Simulated scan of single mutants.
Amino acid sequence: MTPECARRRLLRIIDRCGWALQYVESAVDERGIHPAFCYTVGLTEIDCPEVVVTGRVVDQSAAVLDELGARLWDGDSLRPGERISAGGLDLFLVEVRECESWLLGAVALYGQGQVSALQAVWADCEGRLPWEGTVGSAIVQPLLGPPPGGRVVC
């Protein structure tokens, strides 16, 4: 598929559904481990942040992002520092600091500096967020912005 065909397809999905999801597979290369992540594209059009989830499979990511996308589309607001639930997961919202590094599809569509985003950071099976446990989960769930207290874990 050419980049222009991919762009037109993305715009059709956004036009039909309000947003699209972009899933990026995990990879391992000479620079390290790169966990899978998924993000919305299209919420920028309604002056809302895009939302990203790292370290989950496609179905889990889609459940979280579609629920949060629907909330935003219906007029709810999401803010950094909120603890919420969506898609069956306990989440904490963190402001994404470098959208240009992570949300390539959204940035390509709307332009550099035009996209803001929140990361929906999920709690583990014991209810702990990455910065609350004794063993970091940064490999599976890297933080794309500062957790409470400002210490970035990556």
Score class of each variant (00 low, 15 high):
125 C>S: 13
147 P>Q: 11
23 Y>N: 12
132 E>P: 07
46 I>M: 09
115 V>Q: 03
60 Q>W: 12
145 G>H: 06
125 C>W: 13
13 I>A: 14
83 R>H: 10
49 P>R: 02
4 E>I: 14
106 A>C: 14
36 A>E: 15
106 A>N: 05
115 V>C: 07
133 G>Y: 06
110 Y>F: 15
18 G>E: 06
66 D>M: 11
126 E>D: 09
37 F>V: 03
42 G>D: 03
121 V>T: 05
19 W>T: 01
54 T>R: 06
27 A>P: 05
116 S>D: 14
34 H>D: 06
4 E>R: 13
103 L>Q: 02
54 T>D: 00
152 V>Q: 07
121 V>Q: 02
145 G>L: 07
115 V>M: 07
99 C>I: 02
140 V>Q: 13
117 A>I: 00
66 D>F: 11
50 E>Y: 01
72 L>Q: 10
5 C>L: 14
37 F>S: 06
151 R>S: 12
118 L>A: 03
21 L>H: 05
153 V>R: 14
86 A>D: 06
114 Q>S: 14
74 D>Y: 11
79 R>M: 13
143 L>K: 00
99 C>E: 12
89 L>E: 11
126 E>W: 07
33 I>Y: 15
36 A>L: 07
117 A>Y: 01
52 V>P: 02
37 F>K: 02
113 G>F: 09
53 V>Q: 01
45 E>Q: 12
129 L>R: 00
133 G>I: 02
51 V>E: 00
105 G>R: 06
2 T>L: 12
82 E>D: 14
81 G>R: 15
79 R>N: 12
21 L>P: 01
127 G>T: 04
86 A>H: 04
33 I>E: 12
123 A>E: 05
29 D>T: 05
108 A>P: 00
6 A>R: 15
101 S>A: 12
87 G>W: 06
133 G>T: 07
127 G>F: 05
